[in-house]
């Protein structure tokens, strides 16, 4: 039985990725692309609050909050054409607590066969220094960004991972990793840490996101929450239960650079 399902799945997948669409020729043709962010913990679905996970340090923990900004999306076709999503509509806050935040639909994407996605984790310094009236929606400190903004050190929190662990040395056995800091440098002032990170992901299995006026593509990303802790620096909730504006935040930022993959693309 299981084998049959696998076989059918394989056939279906093969047919999905077979591309019989005529190449895009009209430069004014556009279509729709949807980005889906699926939050994971290792190989599993991320379940807040109740599910116990283990980090690379062998510490058991549960996760109560996982949220992050991704921004400045660019899509690249096989022949190297780059489409940059208009800056004003290229900031997304994904929070595991808010299911709707997993989906972001981009309209007016030029027709093309895209093979690669580039984006930034965090909010770039230009936007962080921009007039407050240019920071609406996900970037409004009163609404979208209310839980992801530092007032006292003006700037967005790019990623938050919170939870509890019996290994935590925090009094309440909690851990909180809040990573922000966009590099400072305002008014020619000193530079701070810059924890924005660039990510380049290639659609696996030679896949493409096919955009035409009558076809939409959905790019399905996985974001592995545990990768904030596991990577080039394995973070220990015993040694560092709380990291916010701290030199160690740069190490967590290096870790979150590896947090995303594109799992697959649906072409409709």
């Amino acid at each position: 039985m299981k084998n049959y399902i696998l076989l059918i799945a394989a056939v279906l997948l093969a047919s999905c990725s077979k591309d019989t669409t005529a190449p895009a020729t009209d430069p004014s043709e556009t279509g729709t692309m949807t980005l889906e962010f699926d939050n994971r913990a290792g190989s599993d679905d991320l379940i807040l609050g109740v599910q116990v996970y283990t980090n690379a340090q062998g510490e058991k923990l549960t996760i109560t909050k996982f949220a992050y900004y991704v921004s400045n999306f660019r899509f690249i076709t096989a022949n190297g054409n780059v489409y940059t999503v208009p800056q004003d509509s290229s900031y997304f806050l994904i929070s595991e607590a808010d299911k709707a935040s997993a989906f972001h639909t981009l309209k007016n994407v030029p027709a093309g066969d895209y093979v690669q996605v580039k984006f930034m984790i965090g909010v770039d310094s230009t936007r962080s220094l921009m007039d407050i009236s240019k920071r609406t929606g996900a970037l409004d400190p009163a609404t979208g960004a209310s839980d992801m903004y530092w007032g006292w050190n003006s700037g967005y929190i790019f990623a938050k991972l919170e939870g509890s662990s019996p290994s935590s040395t925090d009094r309440q056995k909690l851990f909180r990793y809040h990573v922000g800091l966009f590099g400072g440098g305002f008014n020619n002032g000193v530079k701070t840490l810059n924890n924005t990170r660039e990510v380049t992901l290639t659609i696996p299995n030679n896949g493409k996101a096919i955009i035409r006026k009558d076809r939409r593509a959905q790019v399905h990303f996985f974001a592995d929450a545990l990768k904030m802790l596991n990577g080039t620096t394995n973070i220990s909730v015993a040694a560092n239960p709380n990291v916010m504006v701290d030199a160690l935040s740069a190490k967590i930022a290096d870790n979150y650079t590896q947090m995303f993959i594109i799992d697959h693309v649906h072409n409709e």
């Binding site: 220094l129 400190p141 609404t143 209310s146 006292w152 003006s154 305002f186 008014n187």
Partner: peptide
């Protein structure tokens, strides 16, 4: 010098637990 723009300054006292202890969104 943690705030670089006067427009962003009032968020700090409004949200500071030892000052006004409110969320900007609630004020709005």
């Amino acid at each position: 010098g943690g705030v670089h723009d006067l427009d962003l300054q009032p968020i700090v006292p409004i949200e500071n637990p030892v000052e006004m202890d409110e969320k900007l969104g609630n004020v709005i």
